[in-house]
Amino acid sequence: MGIISRGFGGRRRESVPGLPPGQYLTHDFPVLSAGPTPRVPLDRWRFTVTTETGDRTSWNWTEFQALPAEDVTVDIHCVTKWSKLGSTWRGVSLDTLLAGVESAADYTMVHSFGGYTTNVPMEDLLDGKAWVAYKFDGEDLEPEHGGPARLLIPHLYFWKSAKWVNGIQLMPEDEPGFWEAAGYHMYGDPWREQRYQGD
C-alpha cells in the first residue's frame, strides 16, 4: 500500500458487516462500460438459446414478454468493489427459458449485443438463481444498465450479469468470456473473493 494521503476520504463508501470480503456498500448504481452502449430497438431484439448440437430456440420481444415473469429482490456485488443491497428486478427465470431445451452441456457462454461474452456453468443458471431481467426498480431497464434486457445472476460477481444479453450458447467444456480471457476468474464467487485467475 502507498503512503496515506492525509485528509483524503475518496468516494463515499461504507464497510458494513455481512458484505462479501473486500466490498463496500453503495447506494447509487454505478455504470460500468467496456465499449459503446448499444441501442437495441425492441423490434430487432431477439434472445436465442443454442445447444451444443446447434439446435436453436429463440424469442422476439413480444414472445419474451409473454413468458411468465418474476419479481426478485437481490444483492449485487461488482468486482470493482461496490455492492448494492436489496435491488429489485423483474425478469424471466432461466428455468423457464431452458425448460424445453434438450442438452447435456455443463457450461454456457452468454452473448450480448455489442459482442460481450461471459461464461457461466449450467447449474448456476438453474434452480431460481438467474434471470433475463428487463425492469429495474419498477422501470424499464435503461440502455446504460443493459436494457432492453440483461442477465441477472446475483450470486456471482456482476460482470457475469451480461448487459444487452441476446443469447446463450450451451457448451460441453468451459471456455473463458471477455473478462475471463483477460485475467478475471472463470467462476467469480464474491464470497470466496474469486476476482482474478488463481484467486
Binding site: 500500500m1 502507498g2 503512503i3 496515506i4 494521503s5 483524503f8 476520504g9 475518496g10 468516494r11 463508501r13 464497510s15 463496500y24
Partner: peptide, 11 residues
C-alpha cells in the same frame, strides 16, 4: 497521481 485513504482505499 495516486491517493490512498486511511482504510487502504485508493484512487
Amino acid at each position: 497521481v495516486r491517493l490512498t485513504a486511511e482504510d487502504g482505499y485508493s484512487a
